[in-house]
Every structure is written in structure tokens, then in C-alpha cells.
Amino acid sequence: MTRRRYNSQFFPQSSPLAVQGGVKARSARGAIGTSWWSGRFIEVLEGIGVGSRLARGKNYARRGQVMSLKVDAGTVTASVQGSRSKPYRVRIGLAAFGKSEWASVEESLANNAWYVASLLAGEMPDDIEEVFTSVGLSLFPRGANELSMDCSCPDWEVPCKHLAAVFYLLAEQFDEDPFRILAWRGRERDDLLGRLREADAGSGHDSRAGAALTDVLDAFFESPAALPLRPGTRGSALLVDQLPEVDLTVRSHPLAEVLRPVYTALRESGPEM
């Protein structure tokens, strides 16, 4: 809930005390964050009325007034140095998903080889939000009622500049490591990747997915399984249609469906494929 700022002659404007070794923002000017996930986070905050006040925290974040910042399941805690000698305690809460909810997310991820390969390679898929939506969850907060914000400062307005500074740095940390978004929702990077590796190993997918290139270089171009042609499909059939069905999707689309337009174009422009 947003409160009216407390303006009084008893609380004159003051400058924050200097901090040595604080958590300092990387960007000196311009927009907050550079990646789609930090941009998505800021977009959500702007939609619920927080983003319009983030500018007040930019100066604090860029000066290094945030002394510490920690992301845990359901909670972001920080210490921010203001004008008083004692730093302010900041807390931003967002409900972490339970075991059954994460089980649904992980099952959906494990069923798509594209997501598994991307995550095991340390990359966050651009459309990972759709996975959460498909199981009735939201990766990012959908409204102000899903966020709890608290600061020990005397400012009556929520969020204050200390909270805004933490939001600003949080967006930058999402740029540095997008897995922190998932950690905030209750699943640490190592735990998630470990579960996906187990699911991938049990699914019969190629075990080379996500492995270091140097470890599989000698067999990188070898097919993990024989690919016999379907009988009776030679002649006018495209090569992609002569292959056996492969349990592999690219962003929820069957692999053959994705490749078929390419083979069709090649056949029309040259010798029959």
C-alpha cells in the first residue's frame, strides 16, 4: 500500500552517510538492466506502481549505499545506509512455490529437451514464463498484493528510496545471474539443474546434452541412435518425412514440423531431397 510522504520541519532533507565497500550498481546512467528477465521484472514493477519511484533509488544504488543484499526463497533482505548512523533494514517478500508446485514446473521443463539443454548450459530460455503459466503459476509477481515491502526508515511512503535502491540492484543481479529469480521463488540453481539432469538421464535423451564440448568432441557429430528410413516413403517424400518419429520438440513444436519448411524450400530450389 502506498502512503503519503511525511513532510515536516522536524525531518529536514539530508544526505546519506558515505559507505565503503557497498553493493554498487554497474550502470552509471540509463535504463535499469539489459536482459529480458531484468526488463520483465522492471516492467512488472512499473505495472504495479513501483517502477515510477525507482528513480529515487538510482542515486543510492549508484553511490553504493546498499551495504548488503541477499536473495533467499521468498525473501530479499538488504542493509541500506541512509543519513542516520544505523543502516536501515530492508525486506522484500514474494511467496516461494511449494514442493508440489515446483514438481509440476520441473516435470514440464523435463518434457521439453530445448529447455533442459538450455538450462543445463546455464542459459535462461526466453519463454520460460510460459512453463510457469502452463501449470497455473507466475514467475514474476502479478500485482502489488503479491509483494510485501518493509524498511526500518521513518519515511511513510512505500516503497521508499531505500527499497527502490534494492529493487534497482536486484534487477541488475538478475542480469548477472537470472537463476536468482528462480531462487527467489524457492528453487536454487544447483537443486534445479540436479533434478533436470536426473530427469534427462531417465528419459533416454542424449546424455551429451549440456555436457562440455571438450568432453564429447570425439563423438560430437555422431548420431546417438540409428536412424532407419521408413519403408515405402521414398520417392516424392521429403527426407525429414522418411525419418522415424523423434521425441524432441523445439519450443513446444515437433522437430519434424520445424524442419519441414526448410526441406520443402530446398527441394523446390534444387534437386529432390
Rank of each mutant, 00 (worst) to 15 (best):
S223T: 01
G232E: 02
A237W: 15
T264G: 00
L266D: 04
A226S: 03
P228V: 04
A256P: 13
T249S: 12
T233W: 12
L229T: 08
V262Y: 13
L266F: 05
S223N: 06
R234C: 07
G235F: 12
G232A: 06
P261Q: 07
S269D: 12
L266M: 08
A225D: 02
D241K: 00
D241N: 01
V262F: 10
S252P: 11
T264L: 03
R260Q: 03
P224G: 09
E222T: 15
E257V: 15
V258R: 15
T264F: 00
T264H: 03
E272K: 14
P244H: 01
L243V: 04
R267C: 02
L229E: 09
E268Y: 04
P271H: 08
E272Q: 13
M273R: 12
G270H: 08
H253K: 15
E268F: 02
A225V: 01
S236F: 06
L248F: 05
Y263R: 08
A225S: 01
L266E: 05
P271W: 01
G232M: 06
V246C: 07
R260A: 00
E245A: 08
S236M: 13
A226L: 10
G235E: 05
L266I: 09
A225W: 05
D247W: 06
R260N: 05
A226P: 01
Q242F: 08
V258Q: 13
L227K: 00
M273G: 06
A237E: 10
P271F: 03
L255N: 03
A237P: 02
P224S: 10
L248M: 12
E222D: 15
A226D: 05
Q242E: 08
V262T: 11
E257T: 15
H253N: 14
L248E: 13
R251A: 10
E257C: 15
A237F: 14
S223G: 03
T249G: 09
P224W: 07
T233Y: 10
E222L: 15
H253Y: 07
E222P: 05
V262K: 15
T264W: 00
L243T: 01
L239G: 02
E272C: 10
A237I: 11
S236W: 08
T249H: 15
V240N: 02
R234H: 13
G232R: 04
V246Y: 04
P224D: 07
D247P: 05
D247S: 10
A256E: 10
E272P: 09
L227A: 02
Y263L: 08
V258F: 14
V262E: 13
